[in-house]
């Protein structure tokens, strides 16, 4: 009732403008804040974990880009899984002659993450140029492949988490854990102490999300890291599928 009124009320008139404004402000604010903190971390010194200011900005750009992708595709789709489980409408999805994981992951698209994608992309290009990267064919190809594999990793992490809604009802808390931990990707992984570096490489593959693609963009990529990234991506994707099938065994079509 109230929603219907709201939808038609005065506030709804400015729906699109206000949403765009809010998203732009959020992206600008987050980016400004991140740059500010990064500048604090550099202090008087010239490097962070062996990365120069411009190089570190490429990492930040990748983070912003991936965060935008999360808001555009991952979050809207995967939060519907939670809703489906809560309302018991997952039944209908499971009865459709389409792969349920695909159906649940590619249903909707939210334009509000696009400013983040654009800002991240712009930051990568500008920072890479100022860091003196020479984009030749091989570099670009490697960067694109790594970016794809980091997107796949990110997707798999999100999907696994969304699938836990089969057990935990209020899973959006859990997605917050992931988002919080992924914030670590704002900085090059070498900036962390050894223990955390190991954790962010082997347990929660944050390193593969931003640091490894950034290396490639800066022309410092190496074949072993490229290969490792692809392996991790394939493993995560496979794992997410297995996990989904496992979770479905516990799905007891919620009534009411």
């Amino acid at each position: 009732m109230l929603r219907r009124f709201w939808a038609t009320s005065l506030a709804a008139d400015l729906e699109y403008q206000v949403n765009v404004l809010i998203e732009l402000l959020a992206v600008a604010g987050n980016l400004a804040g991140s740059l500010f903190v990064l500048s604090l971390l550099f202090g008087q010194g010239g490097s962070l974990g062996g990365w120069s200011w411009e190089e570190a900005l490429v990492v930040l750009g990748l983070y912003t880009l991936l965060d935008g992708i999360t808001s555009t595709v991952l979050q809207p789709n995967l939060s519907t899984i939670v809703t489906h489980v809560q309302n018991g409408t997952l039944d209908f999805v499971l009865l459709k002659p389409v792969d349920s994981q695909f159906w649940l992951s590619a249903r909707t698209f939210s334009p509000w993450g696009l400013p983040g994608v654009a800002a991240g992309f712009a930051l990568i290009v500008v920072a890479a140029a100022r860091a003196g990267a020479r984009p030749d064919g091989a570099t670009v190809a490697a960067a694109l492949v790594l970016l794809l594999s980091s997107t796949v990793i990110l997707y798999s992490l999100w999907f696994v988490l969304a699938a836990t809604s089969i057990w935990f009802v209020k899973v959006w808390n859990a997605t917050e854990v992931l988002r919080a931990a992924l914030v670590a990707g704002r900085y090059p992984v070498s900036a962390y102490p050894v223990a955390l570096r190991t954790f962010f490489t082997f347990v929660l593959p944050v390193a593969f999300l931003t640091t490894v693609p950034a290396e490639a963009i800066l022309g410092r990529g190496s074949a072993p890291w490229l290969l490792a990234s692809l392996v991790v991506a394939a493993f995560c994707l496979f794992g997410s599928r297995k996990f989904w099938q496992f979770a479905l065994r516990f799905y007891t079509s919620a009534s009411s």
Binding site: L40, L41, F42, G43, Q44, G45, G46, S47, L48, G49, V177, A180, A181, V183, A184, Y187, A191, Y192, P193, L196
Partner: peptide, 15 residues
């Protein structure tokens, strides 16, 4: 955990 992540970055920084 954000402050703990930030602790990780800060403790290694020159700043």
């Amino acid at each position: 955990v954000l402050p703990l992540i930030m602790l990780g970055v800060w403790s290694g920084s020159e700043a």
